[in-house]
Nucleic acid binder design. Structure first.
Lengths: 149, 149
DNA sequence: CAGATATAGTTTCATTTGCAACTATATGGA
DNA sequence: TCCATATAGTTGCAAATGAAACTATATCTG
């Protein structure tokens, strides 16, 4: 008995998409303008700043970026001297990527800017609001990730 | 004193993007495979099913799709005979779009499927969870929409 | 009413993205 | 060990996207 009608405005996938696009447009414009970075490039830097050395594959799973985009983003970052690659002693097909000194310096500039943007975005959110949003997003992500039919 | 460090995993814009991509990938694949529709096309149909006739401009603001994509999506739908255009008596530059009988029939198929996917995605969400998510997404969207510097 | 300016929508072109094919290395079985 | 198959990463090509130019109509100003 699904008499329930569909209203796009109240449709959660739609709300999610609209919110994500709004945020992403805003933030990616800022990365781009201020640091010349695209989103995947920025994500690689953020992850490499937390962990030391990683293979493209590990970066892909840590950032949710597919291997093609990781490859392209890494190439761009190497070109700019922000990350460096060395052979992976454990697997000749792969290599290990790490931030260079320049990369670290750039990260030191971006990280506070990113946190500031996030803070601006979440202005007025209580700690609970924030935790709730985080948890709900993870649940949805998990539900969407698992496939059924 | 922002000693706080950045962790991508806990960064809300990142969580939002990952969740939205997961959902959008899942759902858009389904629209595409089952009905041959891209996301903007599906959105135009959903909005036109709620309201009767609309101009491309109105559709754009109702769906959050830019005018170029509205134009292309509308062209594809007209081509398929799912919507029809007539001159706008109030403005010769514009026209009015509405679902055809075929369009309505397709909508009658898609709407339940869309609601089912949403239900699957939100399985385990209480009514409160859902309302909370909706509200938080709208707040973020508003914060991201308004520009500051 | 004529000319200037603004707006609706489309089209063209450059950029971005994603898939599929490719290269190189690794692994597992005869 | 040698061959078959699998996996890491890259590249080339085709489709999707977005910005800027364009056409047509509307509105505003003198």
């Amino acid at each position: 008995m699904s008499i329930m009608t569909l209203r796009l405005d109240a449709f959660i996938p739609y709300r999610l998409s609209v919110a994500s696009n709004a945020v992403s447009t805003r933030i990616s414009a800022s990365y781009r303008k201020r640091f010349g970075l695209k989103v995947p490039e920025w994500r690689l830097i953020a992850i490499l700043a937390e962990a030391s050395e990683m293979t493209p594959q590990m970066l892909g799973s840590a950032t949710g970026i597919d291997k093609i985009s990781v490859s392209r983003a890494a190439a761009a970052l190497i070109e700019r001297g922000l990350i460096a690659a060395r052979d992976n002693p454990e697997d000749g097909r792969s290599h290990l990527l790490a931030l260079t000194t320049d990369g670290r310096a750039l990260y030191a500039e971006i990280a506070p800017a990113a946190l500031a943007m996030e803070a601006e975005l979440l202005a007025g959110f209580s700690v609970e609001d924030r935790a709730c949003l985080d948890a709900l997003l993870r649940r949805i992500e998990a539900a969407a990730g698992a496939d059924s039919s």
